[in-house]
Nucleic acid binder design. Structure first.
Length: 462
RNA sequence: GGCGCCGUACCCAAGUGGCUAAGGGAGAGGUCUGCAAAACCUCGAUGCAGCGGUUCGAAUCCGCUCGGCGCCUCCA
């Protein structure tokens, strides 16, 4: 059974969904004001992994991820680029989906955009107004945290004394309490706005997640995921809004992946260590290596993202790919021997145990490498027969359905490449090694590495 | 100032009270090979930042010290 660390209780809990066999899963998606950076993708890769593991564990999963397409930054950037908000955010939404695809992140089942759900947000705000949780000031509507006793439960902060001791915060929104947050922002000159029954303006950031998650997943749902930085204030505020509006517990399990740092320092544009996925791919790193590095460290631990780490990740993946390649050569017929099938069951069990333990990816990867070494050892003693080899490949692919780190190598070579390999073999046969070496070097320059083995020549793409 | 995380071999990284401290990368040795590379196998910390303490027993619990990082404001 899966155990997950729940931020609400600050402990690991057994995961039991509200409805047996089904998981209602919400993840905070990107604000589409620019290309997503590698830190964003740590969180998104983790969420994808969690989702895939839930599916692997036979749950029916409904995954909702929002797109925040209206906020200060999107409005500002759209205006700077002379585009409409809609066109501008559509461009970066597409870019985000394309980047996600490269990292083998599955698209969510439902991907609602904030601007498509203004009526739902307005309804939620009205309901909060009717229940007396809000106040208005200059056309904006604020949520008063002092009226929600549970405020601070998620972030473990005590706000009960905040009012008395709070400095009068004379910021632009004129809140009663410094921690109060805006549900609806009054229309400002030159900014996008919506004419609604609660007045002209635009939604605050927090309300969109409450409105959209509850619309698609119900007033109570199972898992809500987002980076640690969202615990406060974003998720704290979501709980306040949602629970005050519905009187129901909002989310059962809050799961928060830690931050990523780059080369030992916080990623920031001023330090010059700020990378988008596109930057890294342009530098020649493979998406698989990036994904591997992102998920090789437990999600609740800070991850130090380095070029050396990427290099190591690439080598680690290579080991697994070489294994699959070698086993595939053995052919594919028949059922595995009972003994080998038992080895696979054992490996699968160990993999699940690691993943069940709060998604312990480091330990899970270790079980995969253990399996590979075990098979290789046997293979060294006496060659693995085709039936067992095929089962081994199938098992690795099963695991990769969760991890998604193995490249799908094209099975076929270009004709030209195939010809050259043959030509080299011929040259070797007539002991024209100069020619053979020339061809080998040429192939390498084409990204094809040859391995001369007892069984013959093998190629692989680098 | 308040809250929190981390420090395990050359590098990355599991393990959080009890068998020989996972796994990967790099390195060394071996197998194979025309050579080379690749691949595969083998090896690798008597010790877990330091110092004290609790315990029959600690990397794992407690205290102190040193070092690194994060959050408390927009942020994945």
């Amino acid at each position: 059974m899966l155990r997950l660390h729940n931020t609400l209780s600050n402990t690991e809990e057994e995961f039991r969904p509200l409805q047996e066999g089904a998981v209602r899963f919400y993840t905070c998606g990107p604000t589409v004001y620019d290309y997503a950076h590698i830190g964003n993708f740590r969180t998104f890769v983790f969420q994808d992994l969690l989702r895939k593991y839930l599916v692997y564990s036979k749950y029916h999963v409904v995954h909702v991820m929002n797109i925040t397409d209206v906020d200060d930054k999107t409005i500002l950037n759209a205006r700077k680029s002379g585009m409409t908000l809609r066109d501008y955010t559509a461009r970066y939404t597409d870019a985000f989906l394309e980047d996600s695809r490269k990292l083998r992140i599955d698209p969510p089942d439902i991907m609602p955009r904030a601007t498509d759900h203004i009526p739902e947000m307005v309804a939620l705000i009205r309901s909060l107004e009717e229940k007396g949780y809000t106040y208005r000031k200059d056309g904006s509507i604020y949520f008063s945290i002092s009226r929600f006793p549970g405020y601070g439960r998620l972030s473990k902060a005590d706000f009960s004394g905040a009012q008395a001791g709070a400095r009068i915060d004379s910021d632009k929104y004129d809140k009663e309490n410094a921690r109060d947050f805006v549900l609806w922002k009054a229309r400002k000159e030159g900014e996008d706005y919506w004419d609604t029954e609660i007045g002209p303006g635009r939604p605050g950031w927090h309300i969109e997640c409450s409105a959209m998650s509850m619309k698609y997943l119900g007033e109570s749902f199972d898992i809500h995921c987002g980076g640690v930085d969202l615990i406060f204030p974003h998720h704290e505020n979501e709980i306040a809004q949602s629970e005050c509006a519905t009187g129901m517990p909002f989310v059962r399990y809050w799961v928060h992946p830690e931050f990523l740092i780059v080369e030992g320092e916080k990623m920031s544009k001023s330090l010059g260590n700020f990378f988008t996925l596109r930057d890294l791919l342009a530098q020649g790193h493979s998406p698989e290596a990036i994904r591997y590095l992102l998920l090789s460290v437990h999600y609740r631990k800070q991850l130090n993202f380095t070029t050396d780490g990427l290099r190591q990740a690439q080598s680690s993946i290579q080991r697994l790919e070489d294994f699959v390649l070698r086993m595939k050569e053995r052919g594919n017929d028949g059922e595995p021997s009972p003994e080998f099938a038992a080895e696979i069951s054992r490996a699968r069990k160990r993999f699940k145990e690691a993943m069940d333990d709060d998604i312990n990816t480091s330990a899970a990867l270790a079980t995969v490498f253990d399996f590979v070494r075990m098979v290789n050892q046997r293979d060294t003693q006496s060659p693995i027969p085709p039936n067992d080899a095929a089962a081994a490949v199938e098992f690795l692919q099963e695991i990769d359905g969760v991890l998604s780190i193995l490249r799908q190598q094209p099975e076929l070579l270009d004709e030209e490449i195939a010809k050259q390999i043959e030509a080299r073999q011929a040259a070797r046969k007539r002991r024209d090694f100069a020619e053979a070496d020339r061809i080998r070097a040429w192939l390498l320059s084409q990204g094809i590495q040859l391995e001369d083995t007892r069984e013959g020549v093998r190629w692989k793409r680098l």
